[in-house]
Amino acid sequence: MDFAADISDDALDRRLGARLKAARLRAELTLDGLAKRTGVSRAMISRVERGESSPTAALLVRLGSGLGLSLSALLDESAGAGPLARRGDQAVWRDPASGYLRRNVSPYGTGSGFEIVEVVLPPGAQVELDSAAGSPALDQQIWVLDGALEVTLGETVHPLSTGDCLQMHLRGRIAYRNRSATPVRYAVILAARGGSLPDNAA
């Protein structure tokens, strides 16, 4: 697993905050308006926008989906760079809460109808993601590349092993858990149910 480890957290926090604020202003939303839409407090949104807080994956997904932005759109530094995304140029981000490491594999901003993300989840770690209310359902597939992963969707728990692939229509909360003593690596493939991936994909 050759994911980059030398990520400048402070610089990334500031860039994420600036992108979130710009998106909120484009949507003509106040801090209170976004707080109401996403269920995230006004104070927390303000801290994130100022780069004073390191947002977790769960928080970014909720704020991004409330603004019509995918996590990839928030994290990618090379949006619209063309149809080829070389591994060394792919955006990488680590969730400060779980240590989950996420790589945007697909070139972003090409108008493609699907998106591929590579994730490494550390031993014993869990990530829970929940889109803002009203976000559209997505087709999502989880393909385990190496290790064992537990995926919980609603009340259903899916234990997955290397090579397994789980398809789902995703809306709302989903949890990923690594109960093993070694990292698990998996791919997430997202597509809009109507065939065109919207910007609020998680």
Results as ranks from 00 to 15, higher is better:
D13T: 14
G68R: 01
V144I: 11
A181L: 15
A85V: 05
H169Q: 15
I45L: 10
A22I: 08
Q141E: 14
E118M: 13
P122L: 06
A125R: 04
A133G: 15
L138M: 07
G80R: 12
M44W: 06
D76I: 05
T162L: 10
Q126T: 15
L74S: 03
N104G: 14
V61L: 04
Q126V: 14
R102H: 15
L197W: 02
S65Q: 04
G82S: 08
G172S: 09
A181G: 14
L71Y: 00
A43G: 10
V119H: 08
E115H: 05
V48H: 04
V127R: 00
E49W: 03
L34S: 02
A35V: 08
A201I: 03
G66T: 01
A79I: 15
R102P: 08
P107Y: 04
N104R: 14
D130S: 07
D199H: 12
R26E: 09
R19I: 04
G66P: 01
G82W: 05
G66Q: 00
A57E: 00
L170K: 02
S106Q: 05
A27T: 03
L170A: 04
K36S: 09
L34Q: 03
T162E: 11
L20F: 05
A18R: 12
R86N: 15
D139R: 11
R62G: 00
R47F: 13
A187S: 11
L74E: 01
A192W: 06
G194D: 09
D2T: 15
G17N: 03
L31P: 04
G88R: 13
Q90Y: 09
D76Q: 05
A11L: 13
L129D: 03
G99L: 06
V117T: 11
R185I: 09
S41R: 11
S46L: 12
G154K: 06
G33N: 07
A85W: 02
E155Y: 14
A58H: 04
Q90C: 08
L149G: 03
A23Q: 02
L75N: 01
A133N: 11
A125I: 05
R103Y: 04
G172C: 09
G88S: 11
V184I: 14
F3W: 11
G64I: 00
E118S: 11
G172Y: 06
A202S: 11
Y100S: 15
A91G: 03
A202T: 05
G195I: 04
I142Q: 02
L71I: 03
L149Y: 04
T110R: 04
L101Q: 13
I45Y: 01
G82R: 06
G195K: 05
I174Q: 01
V92R: 06
R50H: 14
P107N: 07
A43T: 12
D139T: 12
D10Y: 13
A137R: 07
G64Q: 00
L12Y: 08
L34W: 02
H158A: 11
S41E: 09
G64P: 00
D9N: 13
R94A: 14
S70P: 08
R19V: 06
R185L: 12
N104V: 15
P107E: 07
G194K: 13
L74H: 02
V117D: 04
M44A: 08
A192S: 13
L25T: 14
V48S: 05
Q167I: 13
G195F: 06
S65R: 01
L69P: 00
R177Q: 10
R50A: 10
A191Q: 10
